[in-house]
Simulated assay, not measured.
Amino acid sequence: MKPTSSSPGRVRVLLSRSAAAILGGYALTSAVVIFLGAVLPLPKSQAILAASLASFAVYTAAIVWVFAVQDNRRAWLGLLLPAVVLAVLGWWLGRGMV
């Protein structure tokens, strides 16, 4: 069996994607929970529970998506930009500013 060589570049890409999947996926999932908790037409406790249940699907999809895209920048931006937008909107809507 031939030993496989891993260049430092490939290791960095894998570490970056893993960090994006774990940290960026968590940030996106948290933002989705904040947003859905604010916009679902349910009592607050039920809206947060429903959003928390949906978070399992969001986190799984985020992890799969990170490893499916072509480059690391798209993986990071594709998670962090929607996370920031959803968190701000969720916070804004949850405060009753609309």
Results as ranks from 00 to 15, higher is better:
47 A>R: 02
25 G>Y: 01
69 V>A: 02
70 Q>A: 11
96 G>P: 01
62 A>G: 05
78 G>T: 05
73 R>V: 08
56 F>Y: 10
82 P>I: 04
44 K>N: 10
64 V>W: 07
27 A>W: 08
22 I>G: 09
94 G>F: 06
95 R>C: 03
23 L>I: 15
35 F>G: 13
44 K>L: 12
95 R>G: 06
17 R>S: 14
94 G>K: 05
54 A>R: 03
20 A>S: 15
83 A>W: 03
31 A>S: 15
36 L>R: 03
56 F>P: 02
81 L>G: 01
89 L>R: 01
22 I>T: 13
23 L>S: 13
63 I>K: 07
72 N>Y: 05
48 I>D: 11
57 A>L: 15
94 G>E: 07
96 G>T: 07
69 V>F: 01
41 P>C: 11
79 L>H: 01
88 V>R: 05
96 G>L: 03
92 W>T: 11
46 Q>C: 01
50 A>V: 15
26 Y>I: 12
26 Y>W: 11
86 L>W: 06
81 L>D: 01
93 L>E: 07
67 F>L: 12
34 I>R: 13
66 V>R: 00
67 F>R: 05
31 A>N: 06
35 F>C: 13
74 R>T: 15
42 L>S: 02
56 F>Q: 06
86 L>N: 00
97 M>K: 05
46 Q>E: 12
76 W>K: 02
89 L>E: 08
22 I>Q: 12
76 W>I: 05
58 V>C: 07
56 F>N: 06
84 V>M: 08
79 L>E: 00
85 V>Q: 04
91 W>R: 12
15 L>H: 09
64 V>P: 00
88 V>N: 01
43 P>G: 09
53 L>S: 10
41 P>Q: 10
41 P>M: 12
20 A>W: 00
13 V>E: 14
75 A>Q: 00
35 F>S: 13
76 W>C: 02
45 S>A: 15
69 V>P: 00
40 L>M: 11
51 A>L: 01
30 S>Y: 12
58 V>G: 09
